[in-house]
Design a protein around this nucleic acid. Structure first.
Length: 207
DNA sequence: GCGACAG
DNA sequence: ATCTTGTCGC
């Protein structure tokens, strides 16, 4: 399965990009997909799906917990994103098949993983300025890069999901990270909506 | 064996 | 991810 992951260069620039995020509340999981025009950042479409949580979180098996709900939301999409960003890792994974890579095999689209915390691999300290990055190596293999999307803030961990090069992943992530958000704006937009769902969820449960 | 461990 | 007040720091 990991053999299907390819590090080919993304040709040209994406026209339509998508960002994915999930939230959990009361045994339910909600996935939100935000589609934007690239690079104007205009929101084209937003779809979502909520379902019962199917699996507990186990490091290394995030895809089994999030893919089912994500795929249901994906089915509702009317537009056709040609690049998808995930909140998690791509090949930066014990078996080189993190959420972003695994998802690509189901949706047949180039993907990029952007995690907010370190999972595995080692790397040299990176510069404090926006744009500086340092490769992450695991068992002698470059599996991603720590990227400083905003000067003076914590970095993000970028990795190839599928059908892009690490350089593509770094470049696109920087482009989609405005001058405010640490994670790409497209993922933040999904995160915002995912939290709105959680709020409403809490209000309903509050007698 | 011990510690670390995306969301 | 989620549960949660005040609090240290730029």
């Amino acid at each position: 399965m990991r053999k299907e992951i390819v590090f080919s260069s993304y040709e040209g620039l994406p026209q339509v990009a998508a960002g994915v995020d999930l939230a959990y509340a009361a045994g339910q999981a909600a996935a939100v997909i935000v589609v934007m025009a690239y690079p104007t950042m205009e929101i084209i479409e937003v779809v979502s799906h909520a379902d019962a949580v199917s699996a507990e979180y186990v490091p290394g098996l995030l895809a089994f917990r999030e893919l089912p709900v994500f795929l249901k939301a994906w089915e509702q999409l009317r537009s056709n994103p040609d690049l998808v960003f995930f909140d998690g890792n791509g090949i930066l994974h014990p078996r080189r098949l993190g959420l972003a890579s695994h998802a690509s095999l189901w949706i047949d689209r180039p993907t990029i993983g952007v995690a907010k915390s370190h999972f595995l691999g080692s790397y040299d300290s990176l510069g404090t300025k926006r744009g500086s990055f340092s490769p992450i190596v695991d068992r002698g293999e470059t599996v991603g890069a720590v990227l400083r999307t905003q000067t003076g803030r914590k970095p993000v961990y970028v990795s190839v999901g599928n059908r892009v090069t690490l350089q593509n992943a770094v470049d696109f992530t920087m482009h989609l990270a405005g001058s405010e958000s640490r994670v790409p704006e497209i993922i933040r937009q999904a995160d915002i909506r995912t939290r709105q769902w959680k709020r409403q969820m809490g209000e309903e449960l509050a007698f």
